[in-house]
């Protein structure tokens, strides 16, 4: 009867692998505290940056940020899979057993080129422009110039928020230019007098302060400013929430307090969001 005296090469590899694995297992940090966040992919990049900063201040804590969407964040916070969930929307009626902690806001403003004399558009005007019913600024009191409609690319959360607010379907939108991120939208509108676009308010205000050739339009008579988003008056906005199943304790509490503190405002702004305490 044959034996396995000559070990086939994969057995050798398997043994080496097992030793390697068990070795790696042993060197995992065992004394550190671990905090897990899951949820909204919109918040995840910001939360990762907050986590890195938090870890730098508390070397014995590790903050792991995972993504998967707001619903996952809420479900994981409730089930205890995550210490903190992330949700880029307010909690709804069925979720009132949870605790939401706002860490930032996301608002969207329509922008025009500074050369455009039009200063105000109603919601109906905007719907008509984006669905192609109005295609010339003359009809809105501007110069006789075709409107260049700038829309966001599929999959961007700003696009979803914009479409939802104006009750539009992306297929109805007659876009002339499709853009990816905020910077691209601002450059496009700043360089084209007949363009209309929409970008994150935080980015737009920063660019206006840098004398970029754009102006921000109000919505429904409310000025699109960081403070109107913060006060909740501006309609096209949403809070970015950290969610816990009970009142936060221990490191969760420390992390949430850190995420809401003034010291992280630059981190929040870098991700084009509006910090909670900004005025």
């Amino acid at each position: 009867m044959s034996t396995w005296g000559i070990r086939p090469f994969f057995i050798r590899h398997l043994l080496v692998g097992c030793m390697l694995l068990s070795g790696l297992w042993g060197c995992g940090p065992s004394t550190t505290e671990k905090l897990t966040l899951t949820g909204s992919s919109t918040i995840a990049p910001l939360a990762s940056e907050l986590a890195r900063e938090f870890e730098a201040r508390h070397p014995n804590v590790r903050v792991d940020v995972q993504t998967g969407g707001s619903s996952r964040g809420i479900a994981d916070a409730r089930s205890g899979v995550a210490d903190i969930g992330m949700a880029s929307r307010p909690l709804n009626g069925k979720e009132m057993d949870l605790f939401a902690h706002e860490i930032a806001y996301d608002g969207i403003a329509l922008i025009l080129n500074t050369e455009n004399p039009v200063d105000q558009l109603t919601d109906q005007d905007i719907v008509a422009i984006y669905s192609g019913e109005i295609d010339n600024w003359r009809l809105l009191g501007g110069p006789d110039q075709a409107i260049t409609v700038v829309n966001k690319a599929e999959g961007r959360s700003t696009l979803e928020l914009f479409l939802k607010y104006f009750k539009l379907n992306n297929k109805q939108v007659k876009a002339d230019i499709i853009i990816g991120d905020n910077q691209q939208g601002i450059k496009t509108v700043a360089g084209s007098p007949a363009a209309i676009g929409y970008v994150s308010i935080g980015t737009a205000e920063f660019e206006v302060s840098q004398n970029t050739a754009i102006k921000i339009l109000g919505l429904g008579g409310i000025a699109a400013t960081i403070s109107s988003v913060k006060s909740g008056d501006f309609p096209l906005s949403r809070p970015l929430n950290l969610v816990t199943s009970g009142p936060p304790e221990g490191w969760s509490k420390k992390f949430i307090e850190f995420a809401q503190s003034d010291s992280v405002h630059s981190l929040v702004k870098n991700q084009f969001f509006i910090p909670v305490n900004a005025h």
Partner: peptide, 12 residues
């Protein structure tokens, strides 16, 4: 997952 930290073990 989504964590960008340098992994310390396969459990990270």
């Amino acid at each position: 997952g989504y964590v960008t930290r340098m992994p310390g073990s396969v459990m990270d």
